[in-house]
Design a protein around this nucleic acid. Structure first.
Length: 207
DNA sequence: TGACCGATGAAT
DNA sequence: TTCATCGGTCAT
């Protein structure tokens, strides 16, 4: 299991290092897991796209002000949950949104819960993977160094294999909207479907 | 207390 | 490209 130290770093570093790691959720209905293939960093101190932009403290963002390695879950569009991992030390409100997984454990159950046929459609979006892994507001604030929701080592990718792009659906974020804070495994079919304007050949090796 | 809006997904 | 849908947020 990944230890606290992994999370107590800059959100963009953690977002990159999370690619290839295995997200595990042990539930009464069974064990669900998947390999992270797409992430986005949201850093509250100087990022207008963050819910904690300008260090905004609300009941929702509160967990981001604590230390890294905790779960930040929120409901979006009144319908879908999104799962984030809090990063950095205490009082640095940062989180990494998990946007897509390559399913590992509990695939049959995921297909059922998601009502879809193809495995690549179960976790290729932030809302979809929460449905597939049974992640809801119940998981808000959970310690990822605990035993029911945590991460494990998996694949390690080269800089050339990690694509970078602007983050998805944050046009409202003004000067922050073009930051290249989205990271994904190139040529991996489990990455979320996004508008073609995000298509880019940039990788970490180019930065 | 209520108006407004969104880090999406599915259908078209 | 459209739109369903409702909790969180913030101004009253």
């Amino acid at each position: 299991m990944l230890k606290r130290d992994f999370y107590l770093r800059d959100g963009n570093i953690v977002a990159r290092d999370l690619l290839g790691k295995i997200l595990v959720h042990n539930t009464p209905e069974g064990r669900f897991s998947g390999m992270i293939v797409e992430t986005e960093a949201y850093l509250g101190m100087n990022d207008l796209a963050s819910h904690a932009a300008n260090r905004k403290l609300t009941d929702r963002t509160r967990i981001q002000f604590g230390m890294g390695g905790y779960s930040y879950v929120y409901l979006i569009y009144g319908m879908h949950y999104c799962f984030n991992i809090v990063t950095n030390i205490m009082d640095r409100p940062e989180a990494v949104l998990i946007r897509a997984l390559q399913p590992v454990d509990g695939i049959e159950e995921m297909l059922k819960k998601r009502k879809c046929k193809r495995v690549e459609d179960t976790c290729n979006g932030p809302g979809k993977l929460c449905t597939a892994l049974n992640i809801t507001n119940e998981e808000y604030g959970k310690d990822l160094c605990g035993s029911d929701l945590f991460l494990e080592d998996g694949n390690v990718y080269l800089k050339e294999e990690i694509g970078v792009s602007p983050r998805i659906n944050i046009d409202y974020a003004g000067e922050s909207k073009d930051l290249l804070w989205r990271y994904y495994v190139k040529n991996n079919k489990y990455v979320s479907k996004v508008h073609k304007s995000y298509a880019s050949d940039l990788t970490l090796a180019d930065l």
